[in-house]
Design a protein around this nucleic acid. Structure first.
Lengths: 225, 225
DNA sequence: TAAATTATGATAGTAACACTATTATATTTG
DNA sequence: CAAATATAATAGTGTTACTATCATAATTTA
């Protein structure tokens, strides 16, 4: 996996950006600092002007990479899911036992993030926090149908599909594999959010990932008779 | 239930508003039209200026009821959950069988909304769409911890607690009653969203509520042995 | 009923945001 | 070296999210 990832680039739909931020130093600084700033001040308070100031660049230069901050958020969350997808695929494709495979998949999705040295300008730990706290805003918009048609969310959708297929392999008679998959994927983010802000609304305690809850949920549901 | 609701007012935390919108005609028009406008144009495009124009009033007058549109959204979602809570309590408190009670509760939470003639200025069908499409934005903010401390989300939290207690009654040995409750409550909204915008990510088809999926999920999880 | 209080409306103003356009200046490439 | 490209700097526009002030209408109370 180490070797393979060395030459890997997470491919993001070209419609999301004006100019590929991976293609230049400035682009990488935009990604690097925007992650840190969105995490620190929240997506609403974050602006391209502030980002420009932070990276010692100009607002107008950032607009040459992203049309607006919404598309930057779509880019960041897509990148995150692309990155998780790699881990998911590499960690599960050698597993032939369908139960073990699904279990592993849910664990990969739930487990705390560790920094990945292959993408130096991206802090995956911080990016995960953005996904937990802000990523819903990338699709809870009036433009969601157009953007979906334009492929803005393909990576996330592929993740749900992969999980759904694994669920189906465990129990082909189960009636709601896709709903269970999307519930788990969204639920993991939500439980992580609750853990940090509404601890009375979750059984996952701090510094514990919601993996056990969802593994238990999935297998009890699928193995019920 | 008809009789009881006639004199009922959904009580919202006073910190959420400057002046109680239920206390005047203008206040009620603010609520009535804001629901329709947020649904139509989305929360981002919605402004107090546009609302003022729509209700034939002035922007500055609206500020006398709500400090900003974020608090109006908190008000609207709180009202919705307060309204659902009433239905939940009245529909389940006479049920002694714990299984039947939980099943009924999940159905109440999931079932399509019908207009309630007791609150003439509130279109509950439209309000439910706002909850599905926008309500996450009411807590996905940097101010969530302060607002939570100030009791902005008590009604929603009480809903999760109620559901959690019902889950616990069905199976006291189950380890994650609160996480299951919060997953169901959030999951219902998410499945409804997917049904409208990402039908490939759900097994709930249009015009069908996600109730069956969640009832099945809850009971298979709790009755597993 | 007049006076006082309160609610609403109208207008104006400010700082920040979300851009767009233009021009200047580096930097890279042919 | 010239040409092309990338970035920086500046300015400008319309909108948002308010705040402040004053006028007027409606309601309450003395």
């Amino acid at each position: 996996m180490e070797r393979l990832l060395q030459s890997v680039k997470i491919a993001i739909n070209e419609k999301v950006y004006v100019k590929d931020p991976e293609s230049s130093d400035l682009g990488k600084r935009i990604i690097e600092k925007s992650i840190l700033m969105i995490d620190e001040m929240g997506f609403e308070a974050f602006t391209f002007k502030k980002l420009g100031h932070e990276i010692g660049s100009n607002e107008s230069s950032i607009y040459r990479y992203f049309e607006n901050k919404h598309k930057l958020l779509v880019y960041l969350t897509s990148w995150y899911w692309g990155w998780v997808e790699y881990q998911l695929v590499f960690s599960t494709n050698s597993i032939s036992d369908v139960d073990e495979k699904l279990k592993r998949a849910i664990e990969i999705i739930s487990k705390p993030v560790e920094e990945d040295s292959h993408f130096l300008h991206i802090n995956e730990v911080v990016l995960k926090r953005i996904v937990v706290n802000e990523s819903s805003k990338s699709f809870l918009t009036k433009e969601v149908d157009i953007e979906n048609k334009d492929g803005y969310f393909v990576i996330y959708k592929r993740m749900v599909t992969r999980l759904s297929e694994m669920i189906n392999a465990v129990n082909p008679d189960y009636l709601y594999p896709t709903s269970l998959a999307s519930t788990i994927l969204e639920g993991v983010q939500h439980q992580n959010f609750l853990k940090d802000h509404f601890h009375s609304l979750t059984d996952c305690v701090a510094n514990e990932d919601p993996g056990q809850f969802f593994v238990d949920l999935a297998f009890k549901t699928l193995k019920s008779h």
